[in-house]
């Protein structure tokens, strides 16, 4: 398959992730959709890496995975903290920072 097909799949996955981030209200699912967006980016990176026959894109994809793992760690820690304080687990209800 040509590289363009992979790029199309990555664009679809990224848009689905963005749609989920915008519409879902459970912060757990928002984090999952964030993972989808990162994976869409990763697929594009690796497709371009294959296109040029160069490993830099794969290194960048591994770094993106690291950042995603850190984001999961912090995000899940925040969700557990929210749960411990018995606040509603809903991104629409958590509006204390909204001003």
């Amino acid at each position: 398959m040509s590289i363009a097909w992979y790029l199309a799949v990555s664009a679809i996955i990224f848009s689905l992730g963005a749609l989920g981030v915008m519409t879902r209200r459970n912060p757990l699912v928002v984090l999952l959709c964030l993972e989808l967006m990162l994976n869409g980016g990763n697929l594009a990176l690796i497709a371009f890496s294959r296109m040029w026959g160069n490993g830099d894109g794969q290194i960048l994809a591994i770094v993106v995975m690291t950042v995603a793992a850190c984001e999961v760690c912090i995000g899940l820690g925040m969700i557990v903290a929210i749960y411990r304080r018995q606040l509603p687990i809903d991104v629409d209800e958590l509006r204390e920072l909204q001003g």
């Binding site: 040509s2 590289i3 363009a4 294959r50 296109m51 040029w52 026959g53 160069n54």
Partner: peptide, 10 residues
Amino acid sequence: QATSGYGAGY
């Protein structure tokens, strides 16, 4: 143009 190709040689 290269996106329509199959990538570099392997």
